[in-house]
Amino acid sequence: MMEERNKIQTVAELSAKGKTPEILFWVGCAGSFDDRYKRVTVALVKILNAVGMDFAVLGPEETCTGDPARRAGNEFLFQMQAMNNIQVMNGYNIKKIVTACPHCFNIIKNEYPELGGNYEVIHHSQLIQELINSGKIVMNEGGAFKGRKITYHDSCYLGRANDVYVAPREVLQTLDADLVEMKRCRTTGLCCGAGGAQMFKEPEKGKKDINVERAEEAIETGAKTIAVACPFCMTMMSDGVKAKNKETEVMVKDLAELIAEAQGL
């Protein structure tokens, strides 16, 4: 059982057996290298295995989608990355992709088609929502999160960029928790401050850091868990909570981690 839960295969391994996964899990750079977000990657793998999903990862063959390069203005670098990734994925005949990173989600879904990469792309919040709706994930009543206050921070690249507002909230609702909204949520949700390649430089001069402003807003709701669905939001919100010295009281967790935890995975 334990082995099944931790099973991980690369597309190359499957291909050697003449197989193609039903769905490719695009891990992303943060999911591969960022110590904090690696835990989200692992949580999602456990969920996918628990429901018996036919999936695989590219492993060492995956490279940056080119999102930060494009948003910072370096179109050449972006297109080099994109074309290479598209060649790899088309070579394996990939049709469907799930990712835990809204930036990878957005760029593969909306910007790869113009360069010859056409896939059905979903974000992990949407996949988990589907799994819950189809009864593949059954949440126990009165779980560990029952009555706990959770607030969800909208990722710009999921929300405004792609109108995904409902899926993450529906997933959280199954936790039987008390879901509270921040004043600025959904279409008016405040950015964590990391988008548009801001993750990779210091902010310009100003009165305050954006993530601190957002963390304050989240803390004000009284929630003890801030749910996120993006690796950059994860870093920014965690740092923001630390800046307010609340890291012992307020947790920042990804949706996949919360579901995996509630499922005892």
């Binding site: 750079c29 591969s32 290298f33 490279t63 940056c64 080119g66 930060p68 390069a69 910072a72 370096n74 670098l77 080099m80 990355q81 390649a197 993750m199 990779f200 430089k201």
Partner: peptide, 14 residues
Amino acid sequence: WNSMFQNIETSFAP
């Protein structure tokens, strides 16, 4: 950002 570009070029990650 220039270092990030360089990282993507050489290590395929930002």
